[in-house]
């Protein structure tokens, strides 16, 4: 049996309904929100700020530190006990690696930019939603970046390459692969790549090619979210403030 129709009726390259917002956590330097289907991520950026302990400091540039955390009631099934787990530590680490290539903290030696991501609910693709939300938050915080990073969980379900897998698809009774991908928007360079399941090299490359379009859809939302927050500034920008700025 081939996977000819997706479980939720979506097209193979179609992402679930998405919502993106910027600036939802007033205490933070910047914040972002990204919801795709029933995976929902809140991201807050604090910093650049003083970094302790001292041995973590980099005298050449500021560092970015990610903290991925699922709320105790955000998983399907039983309660998740709070606290650090190997899974969330690993995801935090790959988040850092996926964002670091675009972030420029050279003017902030010895400092840290903390990115906190929390999920009230998840339905697969949480690390991708985390990265997409975190990138909105970083831009909102006024951190210098050479580009945006957008992320989508690609996958292959019984031979069919799909964008934005759900939990049910990941658990589909066939050969399934789950490939979270993050890409720098302009160059389409890959900053996050993981895979579990089974896939041929050809299908892997096909999935990555398909990720370009999927990431573009996420990017459009990130851009809209940031525009929506700051568009008041755009609509009314005038010559007066231009003069003042000089």
């Amino acid at each position: 049996m081939a996977y000819t129709k997706r479980l939720d009726g979506r097209g193979f390259d179609e992402l679930r309904p998405m919502v993106a917002k910027a600036g939802i956590i007033p205490n933070a330097s910047g914040s972002g929100y990204f919801k795709v289907g029933k995976t929902e991520a809140y991201a807050a950026v604090y910093g650049p700020r003083e970094l302790h302990p001292r041995f973590l400091q980099n005298p050449k540039k500021g560092i970015i530190r990610c903290h991925y955390n699922m709320m105790p009631f955000s998983g399907t099934g039983t309660r998740i006990r709070p606290g650090t787990k190997r899974r969330s530590q690993e995801i935090s680490m790959v988040m850092e690696l996926s964002l670091d290539p675009v972030v420029d903290l050279s003017e902030f030696p010895n400092s840290v930019v903390d990115v906190f991501v929390e999920f009230p609910q998840t339905d697969a693709g949480s690390r991708c939603a985390a990265i997409s939300a975190a990138c909105i938050a970083l831009a909102d915080a006024g951190i210098r970046m050479k580009d945006m990073v957008a992320s989508v969980a690609m996958g292959q379900v019984d031979g069919a390459i799909c964008a934005d897998l759900t939990y049910n698809e990941e658990a589909f009774d066939a050969i399934v692969s789950d490939i979270p991908v993050a890409m720098i928007h302009g160059t389409k360079e890959i900053t996050l790549l993981q895979m579990d399941g089974e896939i041929s090299k050809e299908d892997l490359i096909k999935s990555l090619e398909a990720a370009r379009g999927a990431c573009d859809q996420v990017y459009d939302l990130q851009k809209q979210a940031l525009n929506a927050k700051y568009s008041g500034a755009k609509a009314n920008e005038s010559t007066e403030s231009k003069e003042e700025a000089k």
């Binding site: 580009d147 945006m148 928007h185 302009g186 525009n227 700051y230 568009s231």
Partner: peptide, 10 residues
């Protein structure tokens, strides 16, 4: 001129 632009935008 005066459009909101995001990091990386051309």
């Amino acid at each position: 001129h005066k459009a909101v632009v995001i990091p990386g935008q051309v």
